[in-house]
């Protein structure tokens, strides 16, 4: 089955159906923490980490719930796992890098309710991926999320230096370039099947 090879899953999750720019999931950190390249990269790394952990946990939980014949617990279990993982990441970052902890601010606990992460867990279950495929899917989604964040952070850093009309400065401009970025990612749709 060539179309579901690991490489395809990775490209699919990161580019063709990029979580942020094609599925519009996880928009809030995409707009909120994309002011600086440095924080954007680290936020991307944090989200990717949470994605991988919660993807592994989701796989295990799904298997367990199927065995127990209780798939109705899927959603609530995923939420509990994601919330705890984010808590753990928060503690680790606070310990390792207080500066990053301050820079990420409120957006770090907001990963808890980030739809990109819950969406990932639900998508991989729906698509029926096995453990390895889930892992690659999470990695691809994380890479795509980081890519989107880095791209918009780069644009915003450049635009800080540009002479922009007053009316469009700030949030309005960010939303406009987010739209244009999404438009360019539509080009990858041609790669899909």
């Amino acid at each position: 089955m060539t179309d579901e090879s690991l490489w395809y899953i990775f490209i699919n999750a990161s580019l063709i159906s990029n979580f942020v720019l094609a599925y519009f999931l996880g928009i809030c950190p995409f707009l909120g923490v994309s002011g600086k390249m440095e924080t954007a990269t680290k936020m991307g790394a944090a989200v990717t980490f949470v994605m991988i952990i919660s993807s592994m946990c989701a796989y295990g939980i799904h298997a367990l719930l199927v065995a127990l014949n209780a798939p109705f617990l899927q959603l609530i279990s995923y939420i509990v796992v994601i919330a705890s993982t984010v808590q753990l990441v928060e503690m680790v970052i606070k310990k390792m890098s207080p500066a990053l902890f301050k820079a990420l601010g409120i957006f770090l606990p907001l990963i808890t309710t980030n739809c990109a992460i819950l969406g990932l867990a639900l998508f991989q279950t729906n698509k029926g991926y096995n453990f390895l495929e889930s892992l690659v899917y999470a990695l691809g989604a994380g890479a795509g999320f980081t890519l989107a964040l880095v791209l918009i952070a780069g644009l915003r850093e450049q635009l800080n230096l540009a002479d922009v009309p007053d009316v469009i400065k700030g949030t309005a401009l960010t939303l406009v370039i987010a739209g244009i970025l999404s438009l360019t990612f539509m080009g990858f749709a041609g790669l899909g099947l």
């Binding site: 367990l64 109705f72 617990l73 609530i76 279990s77 509990v80 808590q87 753990l88 503690m91």
Partner: peptide
């Protein structure tokens, strides 16, 4: 199924809470 739900979620949250306490 209520029993399964209680036990599964109870076990899950207990494990996660334990992990967070240690962390």
């Amino acid at each position: 199924s209520i029993l399964i739900a209680i036990l599964t979620l109870g076990g899950l949250t207990f494990l996660l809470a334990l992990m967070l306490v240690i962390a």
